[in-house]
Each structure stands twice: as C-alpha cells, then as structure tokens.
C-alpha cells in the first residue's frame, strides 16, 4: 500500500461520513479524481475491513460499524460477558469443563467470564485474573489474530513459565499455526498440569474482539498423543460461532 492510497482512503472515509447517505462508485471516482476501477478497489478494501457497508439493493456504500467504533476503544468487558452468558453456560454444560472468555490487555489475557466445571467441586470465580498471553491458549489466539495482539507479539520478549512455555521462534511458529487453524491448544505452557483449547470471537466485521476457551486437566482435554480431543474442539467452535452471532447483535 502506498502512502497515496492511505491518503485516498482517508479522504474517501471523510467523504462518505460527510455525505449523510449512501454514495455510489461514480461519485467517489469523481470526487477523488481517480478511475472508477481504482475507486471500486478502494471501496471494496474498506468494506472488507469493516469501515464501509455496501447496500445490497443499490450497491452504494455507507459508513460501517468499524469506522464508527474507532474512537470508542475496545468493547466493554461486562457487556461482552452479558451477551455471551447463555452460550458460555452451554459450553461448560456440554463439555463438562470450565469455560472462559478473555480479552487482550497489554501482554496479558484478562479473564472476563468464567463458568465452573459442572462437577460441583470447590471452585472460585476467576474473572479479573490475568494470564500471560504467550503462555495461554486464549492469549495465543489474540496475539495471532487481534490486530493489537499482533503488534504486541512483534515487540515484546516473553519469558518461560513452565518447561513447556513457547518463546522465540517456537512461539512464532505456534502463532502462525493458530492463524491458519483459527484454534490454539496450549498444554502445560502456563500451568504444568493444565491444557487449554481456545478459538477467536468476532463481533460485527472480521476483527477478533475476544477468545473463548476450555481450561482443564490435560488428561481430560487431550488424548494420549497430547492433541486436543476432537469432541471438545467441536464444542468450543460451536459455542464460538453462537457467541459471535450474539456479539454481532449486541455490541
């Protein structure tokens, strides 16, 4: 991307915002003094990142949710929990494991929701606790996929918490795999006996706003080869798509 196209994108966004109603490709091309094909490409790109919405009927563009949210900062964590409550309960009930939701805060994952493992054993609410992001599955999801996380992952030097914590090239390789599979499984990387299975949560648009995870004893969460159990992965993925739908409606 050239500096010129960044400048054009900024002008275009201002143009759409000032317009008050939807705007068509020809108007944009005329206002920016570019060819219709360039205007179209610019509009498409801004639509893909959630800054513009296209009207299905007329094909015209208006400001998207992503642009409106820019100045608001990250979603309120109590709102996130409230919107996700029913689905996270169902995840814990179906999987038989503790379910969590987390967001990235600096180099940590902040736990914003926690539902007990349904065996009525003694457990405490862990909301408000922080897990070092690189050593937790939720953290790896957010470092790999949350734009803020990607910036964090490039600049800071993580430390080992257990003998299995990944750092350096091994962590980079893991994050690449997480990006590919849209799934993180961390076994004993933060706490020796715990395994964690996490997937991303998206609100409206493509950006990742939080992660949802199952965390429990590695004997229960992984098979003999240390791989996450397929049934649990399916539960987390199902829950994530249901939560993402609820977040899209409520954020």
């Amino acid at each position: 991307m050239t500096l010129r196209s960044v400048e054009r994108a900024a002008v275009l966004l201002r143009l759409v915002a000032a317009q008050g109603g939807p705007i068509g490709v020809s108007d944009v091309a005329a206002a920016l003094g570019v060819a219709k094909s360039s205007a179209h490409e610019l509009l498409r790109t801004l639509q893909e990142v959630g800054f513009l919405d296209q009207d299905g009927g007329t094909g015209r563009y208006r400001l998207g949710e992503g642009a409106r949210r820019l100045a608001q900062g990250p979603p309120d964590t109590n709102l996130l929990r409230s919107l996700a409550t029913n689905c996270v309960d169902a995840l814990a009930a179906r999987s038989g494991e503790s379910a969590y939701m987390g967001v990235l805060r600096g180099a940590d994952v902040l736990v914003v929701h926690h539902v007990f493992r349904p065996d009525d054993s003694s457990q405490r609410v862990e909301v408000g606790e922080r897990h070092p992001a690189h050593a937790s599955a939720m953290g790896q999801v957010l470092l790999a996929l949350d734009p803020a996380g990607q910036a964090v992952a490039r600049t800071w030097v993580p430390v080992s918490l257990t003998r299995r914590t990944l750092i350096g090239a091994a962590l980079s390789a893991r994050l690449a795999a997480v990006r590919r599979e849209q799934l993180a499984c961390a076994v004993g990387e933060r706490v020796p006996e715990l395994a964690e299975i996490a997937v991303p949560l998206r609100g409206r648009g493509p950006s990742v706003v939080a992660a949802v995870a199952l965390i429990g004893h590695s004997d229960r969460l992984t098979d003999a080869r240390g791989r996450p159990r397929a049934a649990l992965v399916a539960h987390v993925r199902t829950a994530a798509s249901a939560i993402s739908a609820d977040l899209a409606g409520g954020l």
């Binding site: 814990a92 009930a93 539902v115 007990f116 349904p118 065996d119 009525d120 405490r124 609410v125």
Partner: peptide
C-alpha cells in the same frame, strides 16, 4: 425422582 433432579443441578458460579 427429585434426587436425580437435585444431582443434575450444577453450580455455574459461587460468591
């Protein structure tokens, strides 16, 4: 019976 229902109640959180 009610005993079975009582056992199927599970705590989601406790303060």
């Amino acid at each position: 019976d009610l005993g079975v229902l009582r056992r199927s109640w599970h705590r989601g959180a406790r303060w």
